[in-house]
Design a protein around this nucleic acid. Structure first.
Lengths: 171, 171
DNA sequence: ACCGTCATGTAATCGGTTACATGATTCT
DNA sequence: AGAATCATGTAACCGATTACATGACGGT
């Protein structure tokens, strides 16, 4: 309830999901991540056990154990947690994202463009189709954020496809 | 010289740069990273001290201390290091990159699209101009990798600009 | 001579990843 | 009933980030 801890993106994902969900167990968080944010910011499932603990100790969440059966831990966001979340949401965003693409790294360090392009192209085309399927299935209800970010994902996948295709066809 | 260590992207960046440079001190590596890979895969400078040590202990690099003045450590890649690098370069690349953009994360978790868009747009426009300046200054000599990845960076920055602009102008 | 900044490095901490492990369920 | 897979969780390790610290050097 007292030590200051540093809040990382992982922290805000947990806070944000709990803010929307009301309360959840780590496993529920895991599933929510998998169908949403996980597409552009993935987490190890173990973090969804350790991070809520950390947040609870610092007073951002409450934790209570179910009494029956699996004795799961259920977490809920506190007023302090909500405050931290909204402060972060409103604060100006510092740096930009980095590409951090393993394929691109290989390209930079001397990998064969043609070989890389072939593999990357196929993977990105597949990913693009997946996103488009998700978007087609979305009925537009629910919060706007997920829909908008999906749109970003599609845009970038298209860009990747363009990029690797040009590279493949070069020369 | 003997323990197995896990090679991370950081490892390959060090190996790759040393492969091109012949040999270097951590500080020289730092500068090379800053003008190149660092644009899409940044590292803490401290890692450029610890990682070469790790690699040297495992036999991928040789390490020798300068005798005079600062007694810097100079590293060079070994045959084993080169082998590991080229094996990695040739191996098929596993997953795709994630966007991992803090602005996008805020958008997903409920941040105000208009506010986010304004800030992000400006930052990405600036970054795009920077890349274009770098490309204009590039004489096309030297290895191809850096030039090609710069191109990827430009493409994605353009996509970000399109994306946030549309978002800003929406409604 | 002093100051500020760049150069260069080490130490401690901690978040994140990997590995391990057991209880439920479903399938054959 | 046994096998396989999903659900759920813990523990250990380690790479990465942060903080700290000192030396060199150029400028005034």
């Amino acid at each position: 309830m007292q030590h200051e801890i540093r809040l990382t993106p992982t922290s805000y994902i947990v806070l944000g999901l709990l803010d929307q969900a009301g309360e959840a167990t780590p496993y529920e968080l895991k599933r929510r991540v998998a169908v949403g944010v996980g597409n552009f910011w993935s987490l190890q499932h173990a973090q969804l056990y350790s991070e809520p603990e950390r947040l609870a100790r610092a007073g951002y969440l409450t934790e209570e154990r179910e009494t029956g059966g699996r004795r799961r831990k259920r977490y809920a966001i506190t007023r302090r947690g909500r405050a931290a979340l909204h402060e972060w949401l409103a604060a100006s965003t510092p740096g930009l994202a980095e590409l951090r693409d393993p394929g691109l790294l290989k390209l930079y360090l001397g990998g064969d463009p043609a070989v890389l392009a072939a593999a990357q192209l196929e993977a990105h085309e597949r990913k693009l189709r997946e996103y488009q399927r998700i978007r087609a299935a979305d009925d537009g209800a629910g919060p706007r954020g997920p829909w908008l970010t999906l749109d970003a994902g599609i845009g970038h996948e298209r860009e990747w496809v363009r990029y690797w295709r040009r590279l493949r066809d070069a020369r």
